[in-house]
Design a protein around this nucleic acid. Structure first.
Lengths: 209, 209
DNA sequence: CGTCGTTTTGACGTCTGTCAACGTGAGTGG
DNA sequence: CCACTCACGTTGACAGACGTCAAAACGACG
């Protein structure tokens, strides 16, 4: 049981337990020698935490929202793995997390700032559907930036462009509604570029979805 | 048993088997809709291949050198997991691969072209020590570039800079010797930047390590 | 020697980072 | 209730790293 801002474990801590997330959002990050940070993921329900290295924790993990996690000693997880009911599930979950990390690799390595931001918005929207098409960003701009490998100013500009084009609308800083999913998806997939959507002279009506 | 250039599986293929690498080098990659590719890793001895997604292969996998892999049906891998002798090892291996992907994420998101290239050279050198301090790059420039999220021209320029500074020397296109590991490591760790190592006016002698 | 694929090198453009100023909203205390 | 502060976000001007495009060099192979 963690509340916003609580740290579950630090980079370099000796690993005593493995965690499985029951509910809520966390952020998993690494720090390079001189202040650069990279967020490697936003674990949520079902994620296995603390199994990325052989001995010590290689990531820092902190709660973004109120969060419930279950703790297991490493040996218990391995025991659990021998149980025919769970072993396969565990392996599969780790496989999924590996696949997700690789997807993020592709995004960081091969996509522009606009593409990454569009993909990110769609991903978050799909993960936390508060309402019909409105959702609450569980993280701040700086976290988005460090996840996407951008500067927060760049993220802010992207959010701005998307609003100008009428693709999203933001009632409050963390309240977002996607109003043109198709355009965002086209951008994220790379089938169109930002420049191929010229800036409209007028504000686009919110019903053009 | 694969030879250079053989494909082990394609992105989108139905997954029938999981593979464990016995020896050799492969490359694991993804293609985005419009021609962009990202290499997500260079699996070698010990790596588990094909477990990154729930059903179909999400990556393309191809041999860079002559390679030996063992194939298992998915169910067999899960059975193997129930065996106390292997379950823990399997989980740990997947955890390691996840950790490696996250490390690469950090590199792509937070480091400069020079840093990534330096870290890559050190990584490869440590993985394939043919000789004392000389090794054969198992992949071409384009593969390095797509792994590091750079253009091949940029990789070529980085190799060039490192040679000019006397940090590496290349007898042939794929024969590399690290002659100043400390400088490369300082660059990779971020404790110094490229600009803080001014270009020498003369060629540096190879014994300055 | 000629061809082909790969790598290197150069000139140039642009995306994104950097730095700085300004805006905004929440919380606090007078 | 309002002034003040502080953290966070937005916006603008500018610069630099890296991408893009094109040509030349290089090595392998017939």
């Amino acid at each position: 049981m963690l509340k916003t801002g609580d740290t579950l474990f630090h980079e370099g801590d000796e690993r005593e337990r493995i965690f499985v997330v029951e509910s809520g959002w966390l952020k998993l990050s690494r720090t390079l020698s001189e202040g650069q940070r990279q967020i490697v993921g936003f674990p949520t329900r079902g994620a296995i935490l603390g199994f990325e290295g052989p001995l010590d924790h290689v990531n820092h993990c902190e709660a973004l929202t109120a969060t419930v996690v279950h703790a297991f000693p490493v040996s218990a997880l391995i025991q659990l793995c021998h149980d025919p009911r769970f072993g396969g599930t565990l392996l599969r979950q780790l496989g999924m997390q590996l696949g997700a990390a690789q997807t993020q690799l592709t995004s960081l390595g091969a996509q522009s700032a606009a593409q990454r931001t569009a993909a990110f918005l769609i991903f978050i929207a799909d993960s936390c559907f508060d309402d019909e098409r409105e959702f609450t960003l569980p993280m701040r701009r700086i976290d988005v930036a460090e996840f996407l490998g951008l500067r927060l100013e760049t993220v802010s500009r992207m959010f701005g462009s998307f609003q100008q084009r009428g693709w999203i609308s933001m009632q409050a800083l963390y309240q977002c509604r996607i109003t043109n999913r198709r355009a965002l998806a086209a951008l994220a997939s790379g089938s169109r570029t930002m420049k191929s959507f010229p800036l409209p002279s007028r504000r686009i009506a919110a019903n053009e979805y």
